[in-house]
């Protein structure tokens, strides 16, 4: 074996002449160890490495898809929450409008009542005032009549004393005043 390898022993030795690849003495050794190596690598791959990597990759794919699913779910939830918020907002707005309208109506009623009351009061006061004015006017007429009668009596007494009595003077004044 390996005779070629040592063929140069006569010379400097140790240096291989030609291509070591073509030395048939070494083929069986290489093929044997190659087969052993490939079988060992195959066993390592099929028993440990490949199932493990495949499992890791599958786990990752699952994790990613479940994360995506969850994200989708959360997004859905957010959309729902937004919808609910918008709905609540709309409801609140409607409620507020309703309350405002109610309040306005209530205030209107109060206002109307107050206005009516005020009107009535004003009317009553007007009637009272008119009555007072009439009274005052009547009082004034009476006073004028009195004054006129007194004046007339005084004038008559002064011009022609002893003529006419109070009654006739008063009657005459009354008649004059009515005529006026």
């Amino acid at each position: 074996m390996a005779s070629e390898n040592t063929a140069g022993a006569a010379g400097v030795a140790e240096h291989y002449q030609g291509m070591p690849q073509l030395n048939p003495d070494w083929f069986s050794n290489q093929i044997f160890w190659l087969v052993v190596t490939l079988v060992v690598i195959y066993l390592i791959l099929t028993k440990v490495a490949l199932p493990r990597i495949a499992a890791v990759l599958a786990d990752r794919a699952n994790a990613i898809s479940s994360d995506l699913e969850q994200a989708e779910r959360l997004k859905q939830k957010a959309v729902e929450a937004e919808d609910a918020y918008n709905k609540a907002l709309a409801e609140a707005r409607a409620e507020a409008n309703r309350i405002v309208a109610e309040a306005r109506a209530e205030i209107q009623v109060d206002l109307d009542a107050a206005t009516a009351k005020a009107d009535a009061e004003i009317a009553a006061r007007t009637v009272e005032s008119e009555k007072a004015i009439a009274e005052i006017r009547a009082g004034a007429m009476k006073s004028i009549e009195q004054v006129a009668t007194d004046t007339a009596t005084a004038v008559i007494q002064a011009i022609m004393p002893g003529t006419g009595d109070d009654k006739s003077v008063a009657a005459a004044v009354k008649t004059r005043m009515k005529g006026a």
């Binding site: 074996m1 390996a2 003495d25 070494w26 069986s28 050794n29 290489q30 093929i31 044997f32 160890w33 190659l34 052993v36 190596t37």
Partner: peptide, 13 residues
């Protein structure tokens, strides 16, 4: 070098 001899082939494989 027999077919089963551990060689540098064996080592590097």
């Amino acid at each position: 070098i027999l077919w089963y001899t551990p060689t540098n082939v064996t080592l590097w494989m």
